[in-house]
């Protein structure tokens, strides 16, 4: 056999399997993890944006109502608890949507 034929034979042989379910599954597992990470990050960023907007709205209110200390404190705690619940709900729904996709 001449060198040309030997070269073609040695180089032309496939070096990876035609089908490999394990490889496909490994790629899809990583792809889903990357998508979940992105979705979670977006949810957190949206939540942070919402919190910043709420805080910006609350500052003038705090300034004008500085006289009523106790009532203001309980109101702020209640608003904070509500905000935490909303953020947790958004993160969980973002996660569920990522898993469903």
């Amino acid at each position: 056999m001449d060198e040309e034929a030997r070269l073609s034979r040695a180089l032309g042989a496939p070096v990876a399997p035609k089908r490999d379910a394990r490889f496909v599954l490994a790629v899809m597992r990583d792809a889903e993890a990357a998508r979940f990470k992105k979705a979670s990050l977006l949810a957190v960023l949206r939540g942070a944006g919402f919190a910043a907007a709420a805080a910006a709205l609350a500052v003038p209110f705090l300034g004008s109502a500085s006289a009523g200390g106790a009532a203001l404190q309980s109101g702020a705690v209640g608003a904070g608890a509500l905000l935490t619940l909303v953020l947790a709900w958004r993160v969980m729904t973002g996660r569920a949507a990522a898993v469903r996709r």
Partner: peptide
């Protein structure tokens, strides 16, 4: 994701072969 898995399945041999 099933559609993307089908693309991976169809092209993994060429991509891995080249990189190997």
């Amino acid at each position: 994701s099933r559609a993307f898995a089908a693309l991976v399945d169809a092209h993994q041999q060429a991509v891995r072969g080249f990189l190997r």
